[in-house]
Amino acid sequence: MIVIEAGVLLTPVTRFEPGRLIIDGTSITDAGSATTIRVPSGARRVDASQMLVVPGFIEPHIHGCGGADVMEGTYESLNVMSRTLSKHGTTSFLATTVSSPPDVLTAAIEKLGALIPRSFDGAQPIGIHLEGPFISTAKRGTHRAANVIAPDVGLLEKWIRAANKTLRLVTLAPELPGADELVPLAREQGVSLAMGHSNATFEQARSAVERGFSYAVHTFNAMRAFSHRGSGIVGEVLADDRIFAEIIPDGVHVDPAVVRLFGRAKGKERVLLVSDAISATGMPDGRYVLGGDTVEVVNGVCRDGEGRLAGSTLTQEIALRNFAEWTAWSIEDALLGLTLNPARALRLEKKGVLDAGADADVVLMDHSFRVMKTYVKGKLVFDRLWTN
């Protein structure tokens, strides 16, 4: 049994200062004020009296890190990602694919679906995010045009089977012919549909929400441009409180002033702080892969051969720091964007909170948002002392 003595404990909806967290095995048994929670006999104490203790971060949108790419589909590549992410406070992630020929995607999904239930050294992959190929050619971003195809219910059904019940999120341009046919299948299989890489008008996006879409991928990026006379998909994402919306707060994908506007529009309960990170994350500048393509990274900025942004090298603790700074939100409010909000958006049980019965996914940070220790299901998987 482990007792973490916290200078500040954020559950994240409640703040305890000082706080105390009790971990028994893989679960949290109690969390609250240090003045009211009794320390069990024989428990091992962890001194975090100068730190913030928060839920482990959930990353719904990541293509790679540490030199590894999701599309490799190997245990070794996922484990590299797992170890790398734990250094940055991420404890759960969706392995995110890129648009590829159907046979390539099928093979990758089969491999990932078989691997995801296994144990890893750090952050745990909890499912697959299928980003493409059912996206708009006009808003494909770095996805190859040849790999973008029309929505196909038969293919989605095939990929759901191949994923072995691990497909959790599908990015889809809702304005495309045939998109409607995917909605009942996704709902029946418990797969969330996300609007993204889309040239939808405001009306088309609103119709998609009425049909069951409740998630938006990297807001502003690869979307029809916002205008005061034709707000498009961005207008619907910002105005509709039913939508959980991703933002990449790296200062490259979205200007800090626009991130601040985004925060005001969405409110603390619908923001999702994501990285869209690629294999170059945590690595020196140079050439890296994103699926089957080569990406050039200069000063941490990733671009494809045509100069388009191709993911990021952002990590979630930096996303949290940037977002809190640029919006002037409290740490409690900003923290929701990578804990409770993604848990709710993806309908994850026992994640994103420090409550009795929840998984013991816990991060200890200093007050500069530097991750000091990370626990995944009660196991210490990262300690900054190991790297010193």
Rank of each mutant, 00 (worst) to 15 (best):
L346P: 10
Q316W: 10
L354P: 08
F244E: 04
V298K: 12
P256K: 11
R270C: 05
F262W: 13
I331N: 03
L314V: 01
V252T: 15
G300L: 07
W329D: 01
P249E: 04
G291M: 02
V289G: 04
E269C: 00
G352R: 01
R287V: 06
D304I: 05
E349Q: 07
G305Y: 02
R260K: 15
V289K: 14
L364K: 09
D285E: 14
R303H: 04
E296M: 12
L348M: 10
R287E: 09
G305S: 02
G307E: 07
V259F: 14
G337Q: 09
F323W: 02
A343G: 10
H253A: 14
G282Q: 11
R303Q: 03
G292W: 00
N299I: 00
D255N: 15
F226Q: 06
P342W: 00
E349A: 15
I233W: 03
E236N: 05
G291A: 04
N322P: 12
L309D: 11
L314I: 11
I233F: 00
D250E: 12
I233Y: 10
E306D: 11
V289P: 02
I247V: 14
G311H: 01
P284S: 07
L309T: 05
I331L: 15
P256S: 12
A324S: 05
S275N: 12
T294P: 03
R242V: 05
Q316P: 12
G267I: 04
M283K: 15
V258Q: 08
L261E: 01
L261V: 13
L309R: 00
L338P: 07
P249N: 08
A334F: 08
V254W: 09
G282Y: 09
L335N: 06
G305Q: 09
V353R: 09
S227N: 15
L238H: 08
P342F: 02
L348G: 03
M365E: 03
A265G: 07
G235A: 14
Y288D: 03
P284E: 00
W326F: 03
G291R: 02
A356L: 03
D355A: 15
G235N: 06
M223Q: 09
R242F: 09
A310P: 01
W326V: 13
L346E: 05
W329K: 05
P256C: 14
R308G: 08
L354D: 07
V297I: 11
A328K: 06
L335Q: 08
E236L: 11
H367T: 07
V363C: 08
A257G: 13
R270H: 14
S231P: 14
R321T: 05
K266N: 06
H228F: 10
A257R: 13
